[in-house]
Design a protein around this nucleic acid. Structure first.
Lengths: 350, 350
DNA sequence: GTGAAAGCGCTAACAT
DNA sequence: ATGTTAGCGCTTTCAC
């Protein structure tokens, strides 16, 4: 293992008495090589442990591949912005490997816009695709197309149990709900907990919060069978109503001290929380949006469970470039990212 | 910004009417270029946004640099093994950039061995050094030598407030103690807490647990002024004594339920903890050693605060290769890594 | 089937 | 002070 990176195709050519061209053909399993030459080359490779110089290869190829990322549009400060940051970072390292990263975005509340995005994506002839599936059926149609075109794709955030994704990077959603309940109730014995939910029409969209809720409920049922969970629905589009909705609920249920929310918008209830410091609500939410972090530091939110969306994107793109450039398959298909527990005293280091 | 990565030194040569050689000289600030040529080249570079192809450059240079990592020897399962894993991973990517990573280890309890390691390190003529300072004075002597030799170095784990390190990657130690106290006492009102410490001779070694203890104590003093902290000393070299030491303490102080430990060896007390499930001790320790994680999952330890030692090493080596290969200075000098809060329900994803 | 040769973008030695 | 040239390791024509 000492002669690392030393031996070149020129060496192999010399040692086999063949030319660089033939060695190259063998290396890439190109046809038009006699069995004899093939095995001569392979023998030397095995024995000497040849490792190609990927950069010389890239230099000589001058071929540009493109990885396509399909992502929901977002407002500043929203969850997907964190994902996008990871994409931007990855673009550079991917660029070094001759892989260009392009984004196509769509309105996550408009299925037609998603369809168009898929069309546009295909028209760009990508060598690989990264996507966060929002519309279940449409996504399945799309990845099916990718499959027949032989274009590898990787899921981030959520996966569909479809056929043939290359890899998935995301949070273990059920467990995140379980963890959420654990943190919310640690060292306590709540008789009631409040779950704040967002009213919205879901037209077939896949929804990670469903799994979270399940994990959460299971934990509660297992550990606090006598505990009653309440659901409170708020409307993010009518911020002025949120406070009164909450005021009403909590005046009707004055003993509820534990609050959880399974989407990334715990910041929506901070206005209410700020008005009732005396209640010492214990509040757990998800994702390190700037607004959530602020709520954490202000002491309004007890804890956030975060999922490194930037890393998800980064690793998704890496998996694809590894395949495209190095021919390396990802080591695992389903990759669950760590669930970071943020409190007001460690949040600033994330 | 659209013509990324397109323009080459050949282009520049053509456009300025100079030769590739001269352009290269300008690019590297080599001497022997007239002001006139210099500015002609610079002008084009600015306007066209030239970005060198680092791999072509590396290919042509064929120069091997070496980054030296100075690390304590360790037994399997100990803290430094986590650091080493990061080093191993980094070696590959550094290798791609023509930077070889070499390790030199020493006995962290033997100052003479450290001196020898330093000597050996210098003899290898490294282009950069990564080190975790254990012996304060000796380290200062060593980095002083590095300075006069113009060899950049970066601290991991702990830093010394010495003169001129390139960067530091580590945990914010004081804050980690503060966080530890917060987690230990969250939603409770302890009258007493136990701090388990390790007896050992410290001959001038820098000790991150000192800062942790300070942060911890400050938190307790600020939030629970009436709370009494007890220190219990155990000897890791005499495992058979540990249990009895703890038994004795806790029989004398039956109301103490909160336990913290500021080094990475919380696993040392799990034998004791396992014997007293009825006490429901609340226990917080540090670092994700395999043995600690096991204790966490077994429910013996409530929480671990982990610091990503692998990442520390990785980023340290990156900082050095960035400087060596790309000439990029690190963006920040003191880089604090996230403090991960591990519970039994998220530990397996780290 | 195989070899020879040009060239990717850059560096370094050698001319001038 | 500047130009020329021969590679670095690999790919890709184009011949034979």
């Amino acid at each position: 293992m000492e002669n690392k990176q030393k031996i070149t195709i020129k060496d192999i050519a010399r040692m086999t008495g063949l030319s660089k061209g033939t060695v190259d053909r063998v290396l890439h399993n190109r046809e038009g090589v006699s069995r004899k030459s093939y095995s001569k080359v392979m023998k030397v490779i095995e024995e000497l442990g040849y490792e190609p110089n990927i950069y010389a290869s890239l230099l000589a190829q001058k071929k540009e591949r493109i990885v396509l990322v399909l992502l929901p549009k977002y407002e500043p400060g929203e969850f997907w912005e964190l994902t996008e940051e990871g994409i931007t970072e990855s673009s550079e390292s991917a660029g070094n490997l001759g892989v260009k990263v392009e984004k196509v975005d769509y309105d996550q509340y408009d299925i037609e816009s998603f369809r168009n995005a898929c069309k546009k994506a295909l028209s760009l002839k990508p060598s690989g695709v990264v996507l966060a599936p929002m519309f279940r059926n449409e996504t399945l149609v799309f990845v099916d197309k990718l499959n027949t075109l032989g274009i590898p794709f990787v899921y981030i955030d959520t996966k569909l149990e479809s056929n043939s994704y290359l890899a998935y990077f995301g949070m273990p959603t059920y467990q995140s709900g379980y963890l959420c309940a654990h943190i919310l109730t640690d060292e306590q014995d709540p008789k009631e907990v409040a779950i704040v939910r967002i009213q919205r029409d879901k037209f077939g969209k896949s929804d990670p919060t469903i799994n979270r809720r399940e994990g959460f409920m299971d934990y509660i049922a297992e550990h606090f069978p006598a505990c009653t969970p309440y659901n409170i629905f708020i409307n993010p589009n009518k911020p002025e109503e949120i406070d009164s909705t909450l005021e009403q609920f909590f005046s009707e249920h004055p003993d509820v001290r534990h609050i959880a929310m399974f989407n990334s918008r715990i910041y929506l209830i901070t206005s209410f929380l700020g008005k009732h410091p005396e209640k010492k609500y214990r509040v757990v939410g998800f994702d390190n949006l700037a607004a959530n972090i602020k709520a954490l530091k202000d002491g309004l939110v007890t804890c956030l469970i975060a999922q490194r969306p930037g890393d998800q994107a980064h690793r998704a793109i890496s998996a694809l470039t590894d395949l495209l450039v190095f021919g390396r398959e990802p080591s695992g298909r389903d990759n669950f990212m760590p669930m970071d527990v943020l409190t007001r005293y460690n949040a600033e280091y994330y």
